[in-house]
Amino acid sequence: MRNVLSTKILTKDQRRAIPSDQYQLVEYDAIHVELIDINTNQTADYHIFTSKNAVRGFLKANLQSRPCFCVGSKTKQFLEENGQKVVKSAKNAQELARFIEKNHKNTSFLFFRGNRSRKELPTILTTAGIALAEIEVYKTELIHKKFEQQFDSLLFFSPSGVESFCSMNSMGIATAYCIGTTTAEKALVYTKNVCVAKHPTIEDVIKLLTIPDQLGTDRGYYTKLN
């Protein structure tokens, strides 16, 4: 029986995908997200979102819609479910920024983000001379919790989740299973035992955990980073 810690409370369906006869699952929310009330008259040709939380903040503000660029299939799906037109989605912020740099140099963008958002995307775009304004629409708070037991596997869904867990705990010999490359890069600060899901979804992180190593590479579910 392997001890597994998820740094996010899973849904019933996600929990069922982790066989209870093979894994002892512990769950907690490593971060807390709070939407911010905003009032802005800023406009642009396009909007950029790198998370569903940013979309939630935008929708709460009831701002005028624009065609969107986003990171992740779940963010794209959430935007479309809420009536937003998605022009382009990418696996990570750097890939999206490079696409915009190459194809949309003469347009303007509003980037809806959180207080702990990484700087790759705005750095790439502003360095390229692309008009970009940033609006903070949510705040992420780290939830510090100490665990006495050791885990064989750790499931991470954001760089902030990694930082939150590691503020009170050591990864030890556990393998970190990460939702994307930016989360994996953060985990590599604390351990060399890191794997990253091919697609940035919670379901793919669970596949990463439950599919044997010898099958994972062949099926393309993950890349090992160590």
Rank of each mutant, 00 (worst) to 15 (best):
M1S: 13
M1V: 11
N3D: 15
V4Y: 11
T7E: 13
K8V: 06
D13K: 15
D13P: 08
I18L: 02
P19S: 02
S20P: 02
V26E: 15
V26D: 13
D29V: 01
H32K: 15
E34G: 00
E34F: 03
D37N: 09
T40M: 02
A44D: 01
A44G: 03
Y46G: 08
Y46R: 04
H47Y: 12
F49C: 02
T50Q: 03
K52T: 14
K52C: 14
L63H: 06
Q64W: 06
C70L: 12
K74V: 13
L79D: 00
E81T: 06
G83A: 00
Q84T: 01
K85G: 00
V86Y: 00
V86L: 01
K91Y: 00
K91R: 01
N92Q: 00
E95Y: 01
A97K: 03
F99P: 04
I100G: 04
I100R: 01
N103W: 09
N103G: 05
H104R: 08
K105E: 10
N106K: 15
T107K: 15
T107D: 14
T107N: 15
S108Y: 07
S108C: 09
S108T: 13
F109K: 06
F109G: 03
L110E: 11
F111Y: 09
R113E: 08
R113K: 15
S117I: 12
R118A: 11
T123G: 09
T126M: 14
T127Y: 13
E134R: 02
T140R: 06
E141G: 01
I143N: 12
E148S: 14
Q149A: 12
Q149H: 01
Q150D: 14
L154Y: 08
F156A: 09
F157Y: 15
P159L: 07
G161L: 12
S164V: 06
F165W: 09
S167Q: 13
M168N: 14
M168F: 05
M168T: 03
G172T: 14
G172D: 10
I173T: 11
A174K: 06
Y177R: 10
T181S: 10
T181N: 13
T182L: 07
A184H: 04
A184F: 05
K186V: 10
A187F: 09
L188S: 13
L188Q: 15
Y190H: 12
Y190G: 08
K192Y: 07
N193E: 15
V194S: 09
A197C: 14
P200K: 08
T201I: 11
E203C: 00
D204G: 02
D204W: 12
V205G: 02
I206C: 03
L209R: 08
L209F: 05
T210H: 07
T210D: 00
P212N: 01
D213P: 05
L215H: 11
G220S: 00
N226L: 13
